[in-house]
Design a binder for these strands. Structure first.
Length: 238
DNA sequence: AAGACTATCAACCGCTGACAG
DNA sequence: GCTGTCAGCGGTTGATAGTCT
């Protein structure tokens, strides 16, 4: 009925600093998850949907701003091969990054073109090279034990791995207590990917810096024809 | 210097699934 | 079991900044 036209005209468009402040205060007071009542408790004339989006993608504490690192880019490629366009799922493994960030990054860099496909390869290679570089720096990311070793200590495996990955800025996806291997090359060399299982059945992977020099070397060789470009092309330092 | 093109990012829209009544 | 509400997700769009010609 026309007389019951209670449809509210929500404000749209870019958020102002004042609106951000109001929303932050609201979340501080009432917590996340009560988006539909934001307008009732604040002077904000935004829909709950809009408020949630603004909070999740921009205001939430702990968000990382700026360009993705080669490592993050590589992980996105790997996880996209596993999960497809499940951006929120992928985002769970990249602390501080939102599904929107990842979605935008993917669409920008790996849309549909052949050029994009090549760029994907370049980033994968850059990512492997960076792994090797870190491996050569003893003071770098200190992983004392490998997934292989951790399988011997099942009570701490998951938590330990998670903590390390958090420190490094990403997390390996784990499904049913099984590490999904970010092989970096799942797409291109899927036939070799079962070989990433160790003798005892546990997974190892390129992110494990201690054991996988030979494995990583092998993959780097696969990229021989693929020249890794400069920062200007990637937007980050290799 | 100016216009065209490209990249990036914020925000909106529509759909889906969970859940309460 | 049905219905309505709401949060969350993925796709898409539009504005702006940066780069190229």
């Amino acid at each position: 009925m026309g007389s019951l036209a209670t449809e509210k005209e929500w404000k749209k468009g870019p958020w102002t600093g004042e609106e951000d402040k109001l929303l932050t205060e609201y979340v501080t007071l009432y917590g996340e998850g009560k988006w539909s009542s934001v307008a009732n408790h604040t002077a904000l004339n935004r829909s709950g949907k809009s408020c949630r989006l603004r909070w999740v993608n921009y205001l939430r504490p702990g968000l990382k701003k700026g360009q993705l690192t080669p490592l993050e880019a590589g992980i996105i490629i790997e996880l996209h091969a596993i999960f497809g366009n499940k951006w929120s799922t992928i985002a769970k493994y990249l602390p501080g990054r939102t599904d929107n960030d990842i979605k935008n990054y993917w669409r920008t860099h790996f849309g549909k073109s052949e050029k994009s496909k090549h760029k994907k390869l370049q980033i994968q290679k850059a990512c492997v090279l960076q792994q090797l570089k870190h491996k050569q720096q003893p003071q770098g990311y200190g992983i004392e034990s490998t997934p292989h070793e951790e399988t011997k200590n099942e009570t701490t495996s998951f938590e330990t791995q998670n903590n390390k990955q958090q420190e490094m800025g990403f997390m390996f996806p784990i499904i049913e207590d099984q590490h999904i291997v970010p092989s970096l090359l799942h797409d291109e060399f899927s036939s070799t990917w079962p070989d990433t299982r160790a003798d005892d059945g546990s997974w190892f992977n390129l992110w494990d810096f201690d054991e996988q020099q030979i494995f990583a070397d092998y993959y780097v060789n696969q990229f021989d024809d693929c020249v890794v470009p400069s920062q200007a092309t990637f937007g980050f330092n290799i």
